[in-house]
Nucleic acid binder design. Structure first.
Length: 803
RNA sequence: GCGGAUGUGGCGGAAUGGCAGACGCAGCAGACUCAAAAUCUGCCGGUGGUAACAUCGUGUGGGUUCAAAUCCCACCAUCCGCACCA
């Protein structure tokens, strides 16, 4: 009996692919760019969860190859980052050394997947020849005014001792280490991502991305439309501008609230309130963000001052409260307690009047027991606006207010500019020189890359200065503009810098003149399919979209969206938890590859469940796919040498198999592709036993269909039929099915009475409705209802007799 | 609090509104074997029945339909995202 020696078979084909590479760009085939999110080369290596994403993208790549594409399927290393730096702090070893050995190990593991990565395209974000262009892009943003310096309170992680972007703060904690984030006043480099807010939002519509991710991005950008309204302070020249999305409720504003950090907050306190106000402002400044988020019970203090509501001249009190955010809108709001639940809570607690200005049926329903927040109803208590429809007024009011001269139309975003500098060592140095005369000057192109110098101490200083600041000979330089003595910027870029454009570089890795040539970009980009985890929904994926739009604006590329289609694979969990070294639940692919082979593990990674869902890992399940491959191998090796003729029955199975497998791949139900293979394999084995063999063409078809999933055994089987070329040579294409050949001669029809299955009949495939129903009634015998109300026939499936 | 996803045998899961549980794991029985492994065959949701069969059954409760895991309404649980953005 022929035995499937997986390790010999896999070794053999890997060697063959090495000598004569598959997936050749002949310049004629259309391109298909299938990208993986490139990994951080961690010291722990890969686990079976990482494998899953790479298997999915490789199956898709190989499928596209068989559909006639030249597939761009690259891999690289996102190698700047904290673990390597922390390791350096602990051991004194340069991060470059540990990074290099980690890459070696992970690369070995990735090669075990036998994916069709083009290693000639490999990139590493820490390679000066790569980060030269990361820096170049920064200088271009600087020249366009999109990179700017600002001193302001930023998110600060006390444990990582660095500033963080808003996107890196999750639930008030550091995305990397989980430490509670504090505020620190620091001079920072910022990227003006807000200048792209509208495009980042509007362009989401055309992307073939999971709705979930699009929604997360759109909520993160958080665009709203409304108006700014000016309220004059009574007895003063000052006025307070508020932002509102509900200017239609302006008549109902009975107080205004300022954030405690508002610049006018302290000054508004009347002498008798001064002490209370100062105390409140001080207390608010000591409360952490987390505290502020968790505490829904509203606090506040009355300043003693009043402002005039410009629409009706009424005097309304000014309060301070920390439920108003200082850095959104104007840091001040008008409060309409009747129509906003937060204002309602506040007004109720502090006994401020509540005036209803919208009523569903035009009649006031005071006293209100809760805020009526819908923009639907008729305006009341609103002077000239009485009787108007609130939903319409909501849209018209900004213009009306602007015409009246009491405010202006305005849109706002939750998106903030991107805090781009890090006070750490292991990142791209920001290519800027600070000159006492010229100010901040970009390092000229011919001085790039600005390489990261060696330091003695990697430890972050914690003062807001990077370790680079300690190297005098590096810091002291001359101004590229005037030649006078000047100092280098010592902050580095965040890890996201390198990953925001790496997918462009892959197609032109050796270009010494530009990040990517326009010609290659036009030919091979953008990415057609991007596979990776969902954790980057508002981080990497937002940043990469921003970079791409910028690079389009300066003419580097000619498209504004980098990733046409996105697929988020589910996480592999073990004992209900994400695999991690600290939890001790990591399953390494290495042992499984040794014991079952690469093909078995590839198929099992898909078989564990729907690719977009999380899946619990269970080692024992791999036996199922392993047995399947063994049975398939035996069937093929026993028959490939025979000259058996194709029978009608086998032809039918073959076409059904092509149809089903293709349909399931196209709909990305990759787990059911594997079960489909098993199912057809069982049927084919049965039929082959019955008819004494199986023909060569069917064996070839099986091997082509299987090739994206289990490429080694597929090649081996293909070769058994006498073929000398690889399945992936480019001469073999994905098989078509013949619809006519798929059809069965007869079909089984279920017979129901009142929706319950009673029996089943076999009829010929072309039997007409009446014949089938007659047959069904006959088959029911005494179970046939005496009085028949209705007869339903769903062709090929069911007869239902309703009595 | 708001939004989204998920909920089906012992387990992973399958099912264009049309036979619930395909396929696989685990388990049980048998064949082969001195024996074991491997392999092959059969059984494998609950209850009643020797069986044919009947009956219940897809988180819970309603509804629509000849027919519901699937559609609608309400609720429960788990996970994820957002969280005073005015």
């Amino acid at each position: 009996m022929a035995v499937y020696n997986y390790s010999a078979v896999e070794k053999k084909w890997r060697a063959k692919w090495e000598v004569s590479p598959i997936n050749i760009n002949d310049g004629k085939k259309p391109k298909y760019y299938c990208l993986d999110m490139f990994p951080y080369p961690s010291g722990t290596g890969l686990h079976v969860g990482h494998w899953r994403g790479y298997v999915i993208s490789d199956v898709w790549s190989r499928y596209q190859m068989l559909k006639g594409h030249y597939v761009i399927h690259p891999m690289g290393w996102d190698a700047f980052g904290l673990p390597a730096e922390n390791f350096a702090i602990k051991t004194g070893q340069h991060p470059e050394i540990s990074t290099k050995s980690n890459i070696e190990n992970i690369k070995r593991q990735i090669k075990e997947i036998s994916a069709v990565y083009d290693w000639d395209m490999e990139i590493n974000t820490t390679d000066p020849e790569y980060y030269r262009w990361t820096q170049w892009i920064f200088t271009r943003m600087f020249k366009e005014g999109l990179a700017y310096e600002k001193e302001m309170p930023i998110n600060w992680c006390p444990s990582c001792k660095t500033g963080l972007s808003n996107e890196e703060v999750v639930d008030g904690k550091c995305e990397r280490c989980g430490e509670e984030v504090t505020k620190k006043n620091l001079r920072q480099w910022m990227l003006k991502i807000t200048a792209y807010a509208d495009r980042l939002l509007d362009d989401l519509d055309d992307l073939e991305w999971p709705e979930k991710v699009k929604k997360m991005q759109s909520e993160w950008i958080g665009r709203s439309f409304g108006a700014e309204v000016d309220f004059k302070v009574k007895g003063s020249d000052e006025s307070i501008t508020v932002y509102t999305t509900r200017p239609d409720t302006l008549h109902g504003a009975t107080f205004i609230v300022l954030a405690p950090e508002h610049s006018l907050a302290a000054g508004l306190a009347t002498p008798d309130k001064k002490k209370d106000v100062e105390e409140y402002i001080y207390k608010a400044s000591t409360r952490s963000n987390v505290d502020r988020m968790q505490d829904k019970d509203k606090t506040g203090v009355f300043t003693g001052s009043y402002v005039i509501n410009p629409i009706n001249g009424k005097e309304i009190p000014v309060w301070l409260s920390d439920y108003v955010l200082a850095d959104y809108g104007t840091g001040a709001i008008m409060c309409v307690p009747a129509h906003d639940s937060r204002d309602f809570d506040f007004a109720t607690k502090f006994e401020i009047p509540i005036v209803q200005v919208i009523a569903k049926d035009g009649e006031a329903s005071e006293p209100l027991t809760e805020a009526y927040t819908e923009a639907e109803g008729i305006l009341i208590n609103s002077g000239d606006w009485n009787g108007l429809e609130s939903s319409e007024l909501k849209n018209d009011a900004p213009d009306i207010i602007e015409k009246m001269g009491i405010g202006k139309k305005r849109k706002n975003y939750k998106l903030r500019d991107w805090v781009f500098s890090r006070q750490r060592y292991w990142g791209e140095p920001i290519p800027i020189v600070h000159c006492p005369k010229c100010g901040a000057v970009a390092v000229p192109d011919d001085q790039l890359p600005l390489t990261l110098p060696d330091v003695e101490k990697y430890e972050p200083t914690g003062t807001g200065e990077s370790p680079l600041a300690a190297i005098d000979e590096w810091v002291n330089t001359t101004c590229p503009q005037c030649g006078e003595a000047a100092k280098r910027e010592t902050n580095t870029m965040p890890q996201w810098a390198g990953s925001s454009w790496y997918f462009l570089r892959y197609v032109d890795v050796h270009n010494e003149n530009e990040p990517v040539s326009r010609q290659k970009a036009d030919m091979y980009l953008p990415v057609d399919m991007y596979v990776g985890g969902v954790e980057h929904a508002v981080l990497h994926l937002l940043y990469a979209r921003f970079y791409t739009k910028f690079l389009k604006d300066i003419g580097v590329v000619d498209f504004s969206e980098p990733f046409k289609r996105l697929f988020n694979q589910g996480m592999i969990v073990k004992d209900g938890a994400k695999m991690s070294k600290s939890k001790g639940n990591v399953v390494s692919p290495d042992d499984l590859v040794r014991d079952y082979g690469c093909d078995s593990l590839r198929m099992y990674e898909l078989f564990v469940g729907p690719p977009d869902m999380d899946a619990e890992w269970d080692d024992s399940g791999i036996d199922g796919v392993f047995r399947f491959l063994n049975r398939l191998y035996r069937l093929c090796s026993e028959n490939a040498g025979k000259d058996f003729a194709l029978t009608d029955d086998m032809n039918r199975l073959k076409n059904q198999m092509i149809f089903e497998i293709t349909r399931r791949i196209e709909s990305f139900n990759l787990n059911t592709v594997i079960s489909g293979f098993m199912e057809f394999n069982n049927k084919i084995i049965d039929l082959a036993a019955k008819q004494g063999g199986i023909d060569k063409e069917t064996i070839k078809t099986i091997s082509v269909l299987l090739a994206p999933f289990a490429p080694h055994i597929a090649e081996e089987i293909f070769e058994m039929t006498g073929e000398t070329e690889s399945v992936f040579s480019g001469n073999i294409s994905w098989p078509d099915y013949d619809e006519a050949a798929m059809k069965e001669n007869s079909m089984e029809v279920v017979v129901q009475v009142n929706g319950k299955v009673r029996t089943r009949i076999t009829v010929s495939a072309d039997a007409d409705k009446d014949a089938v129903i007659d047959h069904a009634k006959e088959s029911l015998g005494d179970k046939l209802p005496e009085c028949i109300k209705k007869e339903i026939y769903i062709p090929g499936k069911i007869v239902n007799i309703v009595g």
